[in-house]
Amino acid sequence: MTDEQHPGDADGSAVDETAAEERSRLQDRLSADSLTSRRDYLRVMATVSGGLVVGSVAVSAGVLPRHGDAAAADVQPLKVVDRLRRGQAVTFAYPTEHDRAIAIRLQDGTLVGYSTVCTHLACGVLWREDRGAEGELYCPCHEGAFEPREGAVVQGPPPRGLPKVLLAERTDGSVWAIGTAYSDESRLHAACRELNAKDSGVRLGHVACPNSARS
């Protein structure tokens, strides 16, 4: 018999060591898990509950940015395009350069404008004329879709409709962005609210404003 070691023995011992190390790690992890008791969970969840209260207060107090806030009423009208033909769409930024928006001329001549930030997870929304009866605003991230008339959700996970951008067309055919709306807010409501915020004395002619102070 010799003192030579067989290569297979060395490999076998290495495998054994690896397996032992893995078992040791698993045991450590299980031991660490067992240290978290039901009382610990109770304390952690009570803390989470308090954190949710703080978050809710922050939301209600207006910490999050919101499309259509009255502060945006200070933004000047923006010329979007000289002319927008039927079936055409153009993207632009309004009211700030970070707010992506789109203006669409539907086939029946209706002019609509929306924020292109999806209300689900803020992905970019695309205009897809080949979808739906009149086309759809489509979010490719999670297959969300919005109908083009009012921006309502027709498919997918978005929780709210797309916020509108108020558009106006001048007699020379140029299209202007003149204001912003909240999610699911009507154009008339948003226009009246922003006119009230500006307090410029401008009124919508013969159109009666609803109670524009949303509560």
Partner: peptide, 10 residues
């Protein structure tokens, strides 16, 4: 609450 606030229902 977030949905309501985003819709202007403060």
């Amino acid at each position: 609450g977030v949905d309501a606030w985003m819709q202007g229902h403060t």
